[in-house]
Structure formats: C-alpha cells, structure tokens
C-alpha cells in the first residue's frame, strides 16, 4: 500500500473524530499513569520521540470487556444480546498491544460478541522509538515498530512530520478524503533500518530466551514449579492485565420480576485460580499451584501455539511483572528459571 506524509497529527485525529468515538491513553489528575479514556479534545503531546510509556491496562477491554452480557431469558425465549458499538478509534496503540489484538482476533475469530466490537474499531498504531520500562517486545517479535497487519493505520515520526502507512482496507478508507501527499520514497526503507537500531536499545534479554528454551524443552521439574507456585497469591492480576489472556467464566443473575427470568454474562477468569478446572465432583486436573503456574507460562511461551497464532502468547509488555505481588512476573520468573537451571 502507498504511504503518506502527514504534517499534523491533529488533522488526522480531527478527521477521524468526525465519524468515530475517539479513545486515547491519557493520565488523570494526580497521577502519571496512562488509561484508555475518551479523548474529546484531540491528540495528546506524548507521541513522537518522547520516552515510551505503556497504558496501565491494555486496550483488551474494548473488544473483550471484563464483563459482557451474553443473552437474556424472558421466561420463554433465550434472546442473544450482541453489543451495539458505535464506530470507534483506538488512537495511540503501541506495537506490543497491537500484536495482542491480532492474537485475540485469531482466537476470537468466531466469537460474535468480539466480532461486533472489533468490526466497529479502527486501530491507530505508533512506532516506539525507545524501549519502555520492563518491555521486551523485540525478543518476542512484537515490536518496537508496528507489525504489518496488526493496525489499520501506522504512524512513524519523522522530525515534526509523520509517515502514515495505511495498513488495511479499513485504514485506507478512513483517510481517503484527507488527500494527503505521498511520503518521500526513502522513508519506508529508513523506517526498516531504524527499527533495527531501536531494537538494540533494549536491555539484555538472556533470561527471557533461556526461560523460553527451558519451558519448551520441558526441563523444569514439577517440584520447581511447585516452589514457584507457592509464590502465586492467585490475585489474577497477571491474567487481568495480560493483553492476550482470554479465559472467561459464565454466570447467571436472576432478574427482577418474573421468577425464572435471568441474564447470563461472561467475565474474565484466570487459570491461576485453584478452582479454574475443578469439577463438580471435586476432581481437579490442576490441583497444585505449580501446575497452574506452569500452564500460564506454557500458554504464553510454548512453541505449540505458534502454528495457530504465528507468534507466542506473550507480547513482551511486562505488565505482569509490575502487578505480581508474589514476585513471579515475567522477568522474575525467567530470571529464576535461568538461575535455577
């Protein structure tokens, strides 16, 4: 696809805002953390060359919300309740989170609730020119520059201007009427070069590589997993913040009025919970904390999933490290696996 020269983000933003609800990572008063919030005023000034900061939580909830209504029962009929989502733009996604969305696009490809939300959503990605704290996207092929096919529009800073790459049909349609000039021909090649430069700026990732190897060669004993599992406080923080985690449970709530009317919802679940697999009989295939921890990391780093998804389940954002109270987030656990091998 052709790429364009954009002289002002403001123009693009306002153009998209005409027909879409705009969301952007923003801070709230009294805190520096970034949250995905409605952005009525236009792009923040964070883009470009400034130090990269990931939003606290990924954009997962826009497409796979923490709680979602599945259907209601009126006493006679089960009525599917697909979400009605107005066209929306997620503006300012980093490559890692985009890879996670691409991963979930695969996973939920037949889920009508996900699709209803996804179809209404345009993804605007930005290349990261610096590593973020704790991030290791380059190790797991998820960044630092936006991957082809993961965004609708890709923005790459060029001094005070931008290289704008429409990366999907939807992206191209969205900017058609802007009538942008084409970008200088050499910019695409320069971008490729620069990506390699930025990748070199990341701190050492030997522990991650060793850990991945050990997980795939299955050289970690049940005892070692069990020791690490003792440190899992089953808070569900890692699975809540992980942009690729997709497990859910369903639950019914009786509605007021008629005695047997009810709604069924699904909500995020976590494979670290002790009862995640426990059956009514009491039989539990993953009774031990170590087994559950092993499962979590297997799902993130096993080669078995690469065939289906074209990548690992981990996109290198490092959010689990930040939120794990037991000290077994991705960096900590991989360092332990490296040290205790």
């Amino acid at each position: 696809m052709k790429s364009y020269l954009l002289d002002s983000l403001e123009n693009l933003f306002q153009h998209l805002a005409v027909s879409h609800k705009m969301f952007e990572p923003q801070s709230i008063p009294g805190s520096e953390d970034l949250h995905w919030l409605p952005s009525p005023k236009g792009p923040t000034s964070r883009y470009g060359t400034s130090k990269q900061v990931l939003p606290l939580a990924p954009a997962k909830g826009f497409l796979f919300p923490e709680r979602e209504l599945l259907f209601r029962f009126d006493g006679q009929t089960f009525i599917e309740t697909l979400p009605e989502v107005a066209p929306q733009v997620l503006f300012g996604l980093q490559s890692c989170d985009l890879c996670a969305i691409a991963y979930q696009d695969q996973f939920f490809r037949q889920d009508s609730y996900y699709l209803a939300r996804r179809k209404a959503t345009i993804l605007v990605g930005f290349d990261c020119l610096t590593p973020c704290d704790g991030g290791f996207c380059s190790t797991v092929d998820a960044g630092p520059f936006v991957r082809d096919g993961s965004a609708d529009l890709i923005l790459h800073p060029k001094g005070n201007e931008w290289l704008l790459i429409p990366a999907s049909e939807q992206g191209l349609n969205a900017i058609q009427t802007l009538n942008l000039p084409p970008a200088p021909a050499e910019w695409r090649a320069e971008r490729e070069q620069q990506q390699a430069e930025v990748a070199k700026m990341f701190p050492t990732d030997s522990h991650i590589r060793t850990g991945i190897e050990r997980i795939n060669q299955a050289t970690i004993s049940a005892e070692q997993w069990q020791r690490l599992g003792l440190q899992c406080l089953t808070c569900s923080g890692c699975t809540s913040l992980c942009p690729t985690c997709s497990c859910f449970t369903t639950f019914d709530t009786k509605t007021e009025g008629e005695s047997n009317t009810f709604v069924r919802e699904r909500c995020w679940d976590s494979c670290l919970y002790e009862a995640f697999q426990r059956e009514t009989s009491g039989h539990n295939p993953s009774k031990e904390a170590g087994e559950r921890l092993q499962r979590y990391w297997f799902h993130k780093f096993s080669d078995h999933y690469v065939d289906e998804f074209g990548r690992y389940g981990c996109i290198g954002c490092g959010r689990c490290e930040e939120t794990c109270p037991g000290g077994i987030g991705v960096h900590s656990i991989m360092r332990r696996l490296e040290k205790e091998s």
Partner: peptide
Amino acid sequence: LERRMHCGIGLCGHCYLGS
C-alpha cells in the same frame, strides 16, 4: 474426559489438556 467447561467451543479456556 470430563472437564469443567463454560462454552463448548474452545474459547473459555477451562478444559485445557496440554495444548
């Protein structure tokens, strides 16, 4: 096999056995 299940269509994640 019996497993806890919440969807039947390979999405909820509960009934994993290996990969």
